[in-house]
Design a protein around this nucleic acid. Structure first.
Lengths: 208, 208
DNA sequence: CCGCATCCTCATGGATACTG
DNA sequence: CAGTATCCATGAGGATGCGG
């Protein structure tokens, strides 16, 4: 990206992560470190040369680091500590996007891993969580889980533990999460998301 | 911006504000509503056709609205309520940018108005503010002020009120704020920013 | 297969001149 | 002052090639 030439933190941030695809690459790496092929799969539409270019840029800027995995046989990309701090700006944009998500998918691609960022961003962690609870998310494909405790939330692939409740939904529905459309099926034991009228305020209410 | 075709809040956000210049235009309008000429001045380097394009895009997306000012003789641009909620993502990026700001200006343009966003973003408002306090910021050009109370901070042009402390600095120094380099001159009555080692944690400490 | 590099085409951005 | 119009430079996207 061409420099803005402004001594302003926003302008300098955008010179690092403002280029097309950059923040989406960071999104993928926030979900988990990944191989080149994983990134191609998680970024539908990206050209292979673009991904290579952007990974070089982000590595040079100190956002991404390239590591050797699989006993030196494979390259793996991961965020540096500073790169991982982009979770804040990204969660903030995820909250801001609610009015854009209520339109529904409209044919756009959807990957359940993206929930691993979106759900914690939309949940209001200031709401008191009394006991811990784990909810399974069946969205087609492998089951995911949301584990909530007093100290926060974790979203990831289901690790086989016992579940306090289960949510089943088709992709157009599960991301209705952001729109409050996810009524949570049989979740008598666990209220997940609530939207306050038109204001798109999202709150977590746990009663497990 | 060409669509990413992903049903992800981050991707959809970037389709609205991810284009070059867009978030910097929002920055200017977060500081205050502005005329076309004000925006040109506050965005050094932007081409006039780019600004016109981007304002049209942002208006169509519902981020910016065009209003009549000066009794119908002039057009003024302002943020919609949803557009103003971009303050969160922008403040988050401003905090993330600290390592990029410690390098100093390096010839980049600087405008004191930008502090009106940066200072509140960097201050940790969770720190207790015992009494209210107002600090003058003399950065060359008109004096600005930072007014702090229990409920938060305001930064804006000095309105003539009495000051509890005054900070004088040259532009390379005042934005050292982000780096903790601003030792605040004579501010016996008012400690503004403190950085915790290399971690770039910024905290406000008021003892007025 | 994976991890890129090259090549080509087309869309976008940028500087400047110009107009109501 | 508030933008448009024009032209040129740059960058994105897609197909393909190629070594490991």
């Amino acid at each position: 990206m061409r420099s803005y030439g402004q001594y302003c933190g926003l302008a300098r941030s955008l010179e690092v992560v403002g280029d097309r695809w950059n923040l989406l690459i960071v999104r993928e790496l926030l979900i988990s470190p990944a191989r080149y092929r994983d990134l191609i799969d998680g970024l539908p539409g990206i050209a292979t040369n673009m991904l290579a270019d952007r990974l070089r840029d982000l590595e040079a800027a100190g956002v991404v680091e390239r590591r050797l995995a699989d006993e030196g046989n494979a390259v793996e990309y991961a965020l540096t500590p500073w790169g991982a701090e982009l979770r804040g700006p990204i969660e903030s944009l995820l909250r801001w996007s609610t009015p854009l998500m209520v339109r529904g998918p409209e044919g756009d691609a959807f990957r359940p891993e993206w929930l691993a960022l979106a759900v914690p961003a939309l949940l209001d962690t200031r709401v008191e969580v009394r006991p811990s609870a784990t909810v399974g998310l069946d969205i087609g494909g492998p089951r995911w889980q949301l584990h909530a405790t007093q100290s926060g939330f974790e979203v990831g692939p289901h690790d086989g533990r016992a579940l306090d409740a289960t949510v089943r939904a088709e992709p157009p529905c599960i991301l209705g999460l952001a729109a409050g459309a996810l009524t949570l099926g049989d979740a008598r034991a666990f209220g997940l998301v609530e939207i306050d009228g038109d204001e798109s305020v999202v709150r977590a209410v746990f009663a497990a």
